[in-house]
């Protein structure tokens, strides 16, 4: 079981995500949207969406950076004071995300207009996300100093996955809730291309530098305004 969950399943999940995501992008680009519901319901969304996004994005970024640069991360948490600050911030952000996610779920349940536009996939992904954040917050509370032991368990395991020689021993002895958090993370990855979560890959970074006005020509290709083309 351990072999399957931590040795094979992650590959299956990533392959599925990449394959299905690319296929969807090229066959049904129309469906790549965040499908915002702010137009139908404004007030709850503010208290749900804002804490959720800021909480989850920062925590996720920390997970990724720590996995990519374990050395630097190790230095960062080098003193007890800094470790404590990072742990506390992480927990606070986790709680923020948990609160936001729960509200987003409740809002869909309680507002009839939203119920009408919610698909089965929306429910599933919200539930999986809620479980992921809830297990994360539980771990942060129950098994303190995760920012440190993460570096010696999940990170080397992830590294072994990347090197295509999975070493499940790193995570085999972890408590059940941590294991759940790890497996559920890959469940999320697998579900990604089938949900509105694809908007994660369409963050409009080019807006930071592109010209404000866009002129398109049928034959000439796009040109910014006023460049004489």
């Amino acid at each position: 079981m351990t072999e399957f969950l931590f040795g094979s399943f992650p590959y299956a999940a990533v392959l599925l995500a990449v394959g299905a995501g690319v296929y969807r992008y090229f066959s049904d680009r129309f469906s790549y949207t965040s499908h915002s519901t702010q137009f139908l319901e404004n007030r709850w969304l503010f208290w749900g969406s804002v804490p959720w996004h800021y909480g989850i994005l920062i925590v996720l970024l920390a997970h990724i950076l720590a996995a990519l640069f374990p050395g630097a991360w190790g230095l960062l948490i080098g003193t007890p004071a800094r470790l404590f600050i990072i742990e506390a911030t992480g927990l606070a952000l986790g709680l923020l995300a948990l609160f936001g996610c729960a509200l987003l779920l409740a809002r869909r349940l309680l507002r009839p207009r939203l119920l009408a536009v919610t698909t089965a996939m929306d429910w599933i992904i919200l539930l999986v996300l809620l479980l992921q954040v809830a297990s994360g917050v539980t771990i942060a509370w129950k098994y303190r100093w995760g920012s440190a032991w993460y570096l010696h368990t999940a990170v080397p395991w992830l590294g072994s996955l990347v090197r295509l020689r999975p070493e499940t021993a790193y995570v085999a002895a972890l408590p059940a809730v941590v294991k759940f958090h790890l497996v559920n993370a890959f469940v999320l990855v697998a579900l990604l291309p089938f949900t509105r979560l694809v908007h994660l890959f369409t963050i409009p970074v080019s807006y930071a530098w592109r010209p404000y006005l866009l002129f398109f020509w049928n034959r000439r290709g796009p040109h910014p305004a006023g460049d004489g083309k």
Partner: peptide, 13 residues
């Protein structure tokens, strides 16, 4: 056009 972050709106030349 200017406010669309995705660059989805355009004016036909």
């Amino acid at each position: 056009i200017a406010s669309c972050p995705a660059g989805a709106i355009y004016k036909r030349g």
